[in-house]
Amino acid sequence: MIELDDVSKTFTLHNQGGAVIPVMQGAGLRVARGECVALTGKSGAGKSTLMRMIYGNYLAASGRIMVGDVDVAAATPRDMLDLRRHTLGYVSQFLRVVPRVPTLEVVAEPLLALGHARDAALERAGTLLARLNIPERLWQLSPTTFSGGEQQRVNIARGFAHAYPALLLDEPTASLDAMNRETVLCLVEEAKAGGAAIVGIFHDESARHRVCDREIDVSGFTPGLS
């Protein structure tokens, strides 16, 4: 479902003398449906960079990044928008939302964007929020006022609202207590059982061992490290 071949990435800093910084080289990866692959390597090795390239958030300098039948490295913005709406989900570490929009709407939004009925979308959102222990009295408030841990759970609920065939998870269990961590791991297992191909970054080692089928050390793709 997700296939990377010989992917590289450089940053060119035009305002700092045009310095060119190679950050990734020869990256390859294959994730089948129902499989979860962990990206490992120490901080700065390029785990998040690779994940952002798969999402089309960072441009690849070369190589192929196939998600389903779309090459993210060569796709038009229109194809990418369609891919992100239907196929490729991403749970980032930070919640970014329009201020003052109620939490329930924030979580339901991916479903509404897909044209699901409003009632059904809100119900699904409510189910996820309840599972992630966000008290119902907060659902009509904007998540921008929530604590860091609550925001992260809202972000996770939003990421799992639609059953994306391909899913990227950036530290989904960081800063969660034991009970919520368990819920998130269950959500990941359910997504796998539903046939999702997942790429994840988990610093939490036992979580990684529980849900991931394989590990890929991205240090092997870091120029000057391998």
Binding site: F11, T12, L13, H14, N15, R52, G56, N57, Y58, L59, P77, M80, L81
Partner: peptide, 18 residues
Amino acid sequence: SGLTDQVLDDPQHGYTQL
């Protein structure tokens, strides 16, 4: 030009970076 988050998070042109 490009996807909004891509242009803002990984700007390619010197002016956009600035």
